[in-house]
Design a protein around this nucleic acid. Structure first.
Lengths: 124, 124, 124, 124
DNA sequence: GTGGTCTAGACCACA
DNA sequence: GTGGTCTAGACCACT
């Protein structure tokens, strides 16, 4: 994984893992790799990996069993809820940003429409 | 203006000015306040104000006439172009983020639709 | 039994057993279950169960008859003493903590009074 | 300041600072020493000091002004609320611990009474 | 083997 | 000067 320079690495990794979980690629209750293993995979320092796990636990995405490892939250509902919130947050930011640029609601919808017209073929 | 804590103040101010320009509140060729004045208006450190002007000039949003002041880029076309680019960049990021969360194209469109259904009345 | 995450499991189990003894549910001289049995009952790792027994013996709460099993200290006096000490230790910590938060002696007493007023009905 | 061995240093420092704030020794809006200064004062590594500030901010006790420093939450009410919560949490834990040791409500109250009888003179 | 904490030292962006 | 992030390496308690 390649990192952008202006965003903290740990946030970028969290975003990556989070999207893997929320998209269903990783399942509720799954064990995540150990923090050391994680550090190797992403090519970061173990401390950074540890920070990543702390932050995800704080966000309620994962939990820790002492001496055993880190696991994805077991509740399907919580994850679905989390995903919904995440999506809505992105939408709110998107709309608010466009509104600040002077676009009306209908213009925003047509921008989205336009975008998909141009990129439809690229969609999997 | 109130600032978010986790984003550099100078970027927040730039974003604000940019949206004022792109939304038409400030017009091409308009003179911007002096950097001192700017510092007072936004309640920021003079160094920060100076940084704001440097950065905006670097981005081609403004230009400086020595001894006279700073002005918004005159070309209407440039601004229109800038706005289009800006909008498209935001759309790309929005779609890419949602896709990473596992949403298909149609789900994204329905999310937008849904959002406007719920917030229509709040639209100015 | 459910375990808190930030406190070692073995300490949580010890605390549980200790309170069972001091509250009179388990009597002096009683034989405790084997460490394997203990592991099953509390749903912990056998190593953890073993550690629990070691630690309790170190604290003088239990003693071992080789090949027979582990027993709760027989002396009634010792237990009474233990309980008194335990209670006093908790009180000291409680008062000291509240004092550090700026509460005077009388305020501490009124806090306790207040607490019981609000929770009286919930008392078993 | 001397640290206990079995409790993370950063938690001990937080508790210390927190009690200074909640007891009124440090006032709302006050600037706290820089994290480097803090590190020196408590004899800990700058990273540990940084962690302390992060955690306190997360708890809503302090906030950060970028490039300027860390400050105690300005709202008197929030702090009062926080103090109340803290006190109640301690009381709940105290009562719950004693109850587990087999003490009834009245015994708990008499323990407190007894404690103050013995230590009254030591009270400032 | 697992996460948690700590020290040491460094670089950076921000004000 | 201020906090934020990162690397490196170490020790520890828990399971």
């Amino acid at each position: 994984m390649e990192f952008q320079n202006n965003i903290p690495i740990y946030l970028q990794v969290i975003k990556d893992i989070k999207s893997r979980i929320l998209s269903g690629e990783i399942h509720p209750g799954d064990k995540l790799p150990s923090s050391r293993e994680m550090a190797v995979r992403y090519g970061v320092n173990p401390n950074t990996a540890s920070r990543i796990y702390n932050e995800m636990e704080r966000q309620g995405i994962t939990f820790t069993k002492r001496g055993i490892g880190t696991f994805v939250t077991e509740s399907d509902e919580d994850l679905a809820e989390l995903r919904k919130t995440e999506v809505r947050k992105l939408t709110e930011k998107y709309v608010s940003d466009l509104t600040k640029l002077g676009l009306k609601g209908c213009e925003i919808r047509s921008e989205i429409k336009q975008y998909f017209l141009e990129n439809e073929c690229g969609e999997k």
